[in-house]
Design a protein around this nucleic acid. Structure first.
Length: 602
RNA sequence: GCCCCCGUAGCUCAGUGGAUAGAGCAGCGGUUUCCUAAACCGUUGGCCGCACGUUCGAUUCGUGCCGGGGGCGCCA
């Protein structure tokens, strides 16, 4: 039971007590018979207490009494609570609550017991979910927009798993159709020293792939277009060893800490006849119409001919939409409770079509859920860097992560930065990613700030161990009793909000809620840490220099604060893990500062 | 013409049917020898795009409009 639940229980118990005593009037008992949907939230202003509830306002209609009258009775009834220390009426009928320090200690004990699993329901208790994301055309390197889809989708997957769902992560490989044919033709032309075909693919990676195939698999260049296309796609996914232009989509994703369980081939749907079967079924049910020499999937609303979608072109070839119908039918057949698609916002028109197609096939279209994300803008020195295929000035994930990795001297720094910034906005907002800011090893870089907060927590624990001070995770009542500082309890209250934050972030598919939570936690702790320099957690050198300091030092308080630090660390680590941002136990000093420190010592 | 997203502080963005709408950055003022820091504290700054409606109460829900971005049957 969470802190919030315990407060709710206290309120519910107090209300029941009032109803039984007849203090809520004639309707009191019946009013409480049904669940009362009231809120218990941290008020915006700290002077309004630890938590506040609107229960009196919610009950006013059912009970037929003014909110303040109900609130007054509730305040009296709460006087005997062992959770709520004091309650007062405020505003239109809010009841502001202050809690006993022990209520927070109870929560800290729960966190220490659960560790980094704090706030999670049992796994496997939720839905079986197919989460399709990225699915970038394997005819080119991953661009930053794909990166956003990859990172967002992955983090949504982490949130879903943390809330008890079973998630299969899937990448739909578009290895069929015009684009792949054109891709093969472009590579072939390059290998023969000819100009690439009109509308073909250009770029260093095409030439590199052509040279590579000439070297390792010349037979593929002599095979038919479809076979060559599949071979090229395979190398695009795998990558050419040591290549900068063609690192491989799987490698790029792995570097972003994104893994897929299933790589599903579009071409296989055609090879096994699944597309034909699905279209046949639609045709039998009257959902297809032939006109102008092509086959169309009929729009849902009658008479909207212009919304019909082509599934088979007049040249007899299927469109991608035909594959998609078969693909989603196959996902349903694989038994998932829910099919989630992470898509760039420019694909929004696709959502209704897939849903309609599933419905037309007699499949449960309500299982289909699309998550759309907006654009990414890369900034450098305050200027937006143009990213469009047409301009030929494309920005790949690889370029950005490499630049940041090199600047910070740490492999993974680029992935941390991309993940943190991309996840720090709602999917419906554009993301601005400032490369110069992301490269900074200073606290005005939010990624650095948050990671540094975590490193500090670890550093304190490490220092305690070095000083030979024990860090028990179960404390005596006497030790807990020393943890009464308002700032410390406020952070405990923040930690207690984590389970609900996690629940909401997962339910709404909003990883950015975790980013904001972690940022606030980081800020609160960093602030505490700086302000409490006069009352440090551990005995500092000046204290330890005095003989017999152990006799006057309050070890109970140190133990309680170290347990508190560990509880913060558990929640903090879980938050970072949900984001896929690394949680460093120490921060490397930039060379300049490290040199300065050496000089000071010498 | 139709569809989707956005419009909140100088900038980038959170947020919510309820109390005096928040954060970061930027600006201004102050503090800081010790558990690794360029931090920390305080503060200036808002017709929450506009109008109407629902409601005891709307920045939040609904409708319309204005502005910005994106997408609209033989590309994927």
């Amino acid at each position: 039971m969470s802190l919030n639940d315990r407060v709710r229980a206290s309120i519910t118990a107090a209300l029941a007590q009032l109803a039984n005593a007849g203090d809520l009037g004639e309707q009191g008992k019946s009013a409480l018979a049904e669940d009362v949907a009231f809120s218990v939230e941290r008020p915006k202003r700290p002077e309004h207490g630890d938590l506040a509830t609107n229960v009196a306002m919610v009950l006013t209609k059912r009970v037929g009494k003014p909110p303040r009258a109900i609130a007054e009775a509730l305040v009296k009834a709460l006087a005997s609570s062992d959770v709520v220390k004091s309650a007062e009426i405020a505003g239109p009928g809010f009841v502001n609550l202050r809690l006993h320090a022990d209520a927070f200690h109870h929560e800290l004990r729960d966190i220490l017991r659960a560790g980094t699993w704090y706030g999670r329901p049992p796994s496997g208790s939720g839905e079986r979910i197919n989460l399709e994301f990225v699915s970038a055309n394997p005819t080119g390197p991953m661009l930053v927009a794909h990166g956003r889809g990859a990172i967002f989708g992955d983090s949504v997957g982490r949130l879903l798993e943390a809330t008890g769902h079973r998630v299969a992560r899937e990448y739909y490989v578009n290895d069929f159709g015009n684009q792949v044919r054109l891709f093969a033709a472009s590579v072939l032309a390059s290998s023969q020293g000819k100009p690439v075909p009109e509308d073909g693919y250009k770029g260093a990676y095409i030439d590199e792939l052509a040279r590579w195939l000439t070297k390792v698999d010349p037979a593929s260049l002599a095979s038919d277009e479809a076979t060559l296309g599949r071979t090229c796609v395979t190398w695009m996914l795998r990558g050419i060893p040591g290549s900068k232009d063609l690192p491989g989509i799987k490698r790029t994703l792995a570097d972003l800490r994104v893994e897929h369980d299933v790589w599903y081939s579009e071409e296989s749907l055609h090879r096994w006849g699944a597309v034909g079967v699905a279209l046949r079924q639609l045709d039998d049910s009257g959902f297809l119409v032939r006109k102008e020499g092509a086959v169309f999937f009929k729009a849902k609303d009658e008479g909207a001919d212009d919304k019909d979608r082509v599934v088979q072109k007049s040249d007899g070839l299927y469109t991608y939409f035909a594959s998609d119908i078969a693909y989603h039918a196959d996902k349903v057949a694989r038994g998932y409770d829910r099919l989630i698609n992470v898509l760039g916002a420019d694909h929004h028109g696709y959502v209704a079509r897939v849903r309609n197609a599933l419905e037309a096939l007699g499949l449960p279209s309500e299982r289909f859920e699309a998550l759309l994300f907006q654009l990414v803008f890369i900034y450098r020195d305050g200027e937006v860097v143009k990213s469009s295929k047409r301009a030929g000035n494309i920005i790949t994930v690889e370029e950005v992560t490499q630049e940041i990795d090199e600047a910070s001297g740490r492999k993974g720094a680029g992935a941390d930065a991309l993940r943190f910034f991309f996840l720090s906005r709602g999917a419906n907002s554009n993301v601005e990613f400032d490369i110069e800011l992301a490269k900074k090893k200073s606290l005005d870089n939010p990624v650095f700030y948050v990671q540094y907060g975590y490193a500090r927590l670890c550093s304190i624990a490490k220092k305690a161990t070095e000083l030979g001070i024990a860090r028990p995770t179960t404390l005596s009542a006497r030790e807990w009793a020393t943890l009464v500082d308002a700032d410390e309890l406020a952070i405990a209250a923040r930690l207690a909000e984590f389970p609900e934050t996690l629940r909401e972030a997962a339910a709404n598919r909003e990883p950015h809620r975790i980013v904001f939570f972690i940022q606030e936690l980081a800020r609160e702790f960093q602030s505490y840490f700086t302000r409490k320099k006069t009352d440090p957690i551990l005995p500092q050198a000046s204290v330890r220099a005095v003989a017999g300091w152990e006799k006057t030092w309050d070890f109970d308080k140190t133990a309680a604060r170290l347990a508190w630090i560990e509880a913060i660390r558990c929640v903090y680590a879980q938050g970072l893990d949900l984001l896929g941002v690394s949680a460093p136990e120490r921060m490397d000093l930039p060379a300049a500062i490290a040199a300065e420190d050496d000089g000071a010592l010498a």
